[in-house]
Simulated scan of single mutants.
Amino acid sequence: MKNRDSAVCPLPDIGAHVTPGPAGQLDWVGMEGIALPVCFDAGDGNAQRSAAKVDAFVNLVRAEQRGIHMSRLYLLAEAHLDRNPVDAPSLEKLLRAFLHSHEGLADRAHVRIRFDHLVRRPALRSHNQGWRAYPVSLEASISEQGFQFELGTEVVYSSTCPASAALSRQLIQRQFAEDFPAGHPLDHASVLAWLGSEQGIVATPHAQRSTACLRVRYAHGAPLQLIALLDRVEHVLGTPVQTAVKREDEQAFALANGGNLMFCEDAARRIQRALENDAAITGFKVRVAHHESLHPHDAVAYASGGSLDRLEPLLPSSSNAA
């Protein structure tokens, strides 16, 4: 009965009608936060399935058209992302399908996919391992200028303040001068015990958890190597946060922090230099934030390289989560 009624009385399509109000072209129309599963290979050959949030858009060039066909965008995204591992070629194919489904209505399309990717990380000294979840944002657009693809991610690391370290060393020197006055003989055992005591090490520099937000544009045809990018950035930063930690790992981490003092400016320049030397990357933006333990505010630095059209400030990936 329902099929017979539908054949006799087609369902109304109000969106296809002429707009009853002011006419005008629209930059983007679509949906944000579509829940879909995606399959992603981070460059190690092990494709991982993750729960993602997808934003799908086209523009609307026909000024008198009231709306687009949002259900078409949803169904195309669901079909393409379910069948194909997500990468630059698969997203270009999806965007072309968006435009084909809106022929005559749109000439630009955009998609953004956000999810977490798990990477197995070894401990610093012990034989343990643990998982790190890295936020990933894949953005692709197609227009008369062609296809563009960008990868966003975030690295969390520890930063020890150089100024605080210098001030702490001065206080330790002052305490040493008080406890071991000049002209008095020094006893090796006493000094060694002093160095291992809270009385001797009277001050420690402040360190804080810090984040580096990255957005990179890859050259056409370049492979998508998320893990290689993460490894390169974590290597130049020197003190990425850890997963499984025994006492020997914590001691190794303390040693690494002590030999790796940095301001946010230092961290931004290290990443900038590392990405500039990657031939597969044509443009990038970096935002580093040291979430100060001394202040209630953050110390932040930005860096960039190559050509990247979007100039708005980067935000932490967690703030973009739906």
Rank of each mutant, 00 (worst) to 15 (best):
S6A: 14
V300W: 00
T160A: 11
A51P: 01
A289P: 00
D266H: 15
N46I: 11
V58T: 13
N257G: 14
R217T: 09
A77D: 09
A182T: 13
M1E: 09
T239I: 10
G259S: 10
L105P: 02
R232I: 08
V61T: 15
T239G: 07
G196P: 01
R120A: 04
H297A: 11
Q242F: 04
C264K: 01
L151W: 04
Q225D: 12
P313M: 12
K2T: 12
E32L: 07
L237N: 06
G33V: 09
T160K: 03
P313C: 13
K93R: 14
V136W: 03
H80E: 14
Q25D: 07
Y157F: 15
L105V: 13
L171N: 03
H110G: 01
H295F: 06
S158N: 09
V8F: 14
W28M: 06
F98K: 05
L230E: 04
A254R: 08
S159T: 06
A279I: 10
S210N: 06
G152H: 00
V61D: 07
M262E: 00
A244R: 08
E32R: 15
A88F: 06
Q129N: 07
K2Q: 12
P122E: 05
G21S: 13
Q208S: 15
L95Q: 00
G45W: 03
E92T: 07
R269S: 09
V202P: 01
R232Y: 02
R269K: 14
L186V: 14
V286Y: 01
F40E: 04
H184W: 09
T211D: 01
R310E: 13
P22Y: 00
Q175A: 07
F147V: 00
V191M: 03
S126H: 03
L311G: 12
Q148F: 12
D5V: 12
R72F: 08
A51Q: 13
H127P: 00
S143V: 03
S190A: 15
G238K: 11
Y302E: 09
L91T: 08
A182W: 09
D87E: 14
H100M: 10
R217A: 15
G305V: 04
G30L: 01
N3R: 15
N277W: 02
R72L: 09
D298Y: 02
I201S: 07
D87Y: 04
H291R: 13
D249Y: 08
C9G: 02
A256Y: 04
E248H: 10
R174Q: 15
D82M: 09
A182P: 06
D13S: 08
G238L: 09
V233C: 10
W131A: 11
A193I: 07
L226W: 09
A268C: 11
C9I: 14
L81M: 10
L118C: 11
M1K: 11
V236N: 03
R217W: 05
L138S: 03
V29Y: 02
A303V: 00
V18D: 01
L91E: 04
D41A: 07
I142Q: 01
A207Y: 01
F147Y: 13
R120L: 05
A177E: 15
S71R: 02
R247K: 12
H117I: 04
L36V: 09
A303I: 03
V300G: 04
G15N: 10
A254V: 12
G258F: 03
A166D: 06
A244T: 06
T239F: 06
A274R: 11
Y134Q: 10
A166P: 02
S143Y: 08
A88G: 11
P85L: 01
H290Q: 14
H297I: 11
R108N: 11
A133S: 14
C213H: 03
V54R: 02
D298K: 04
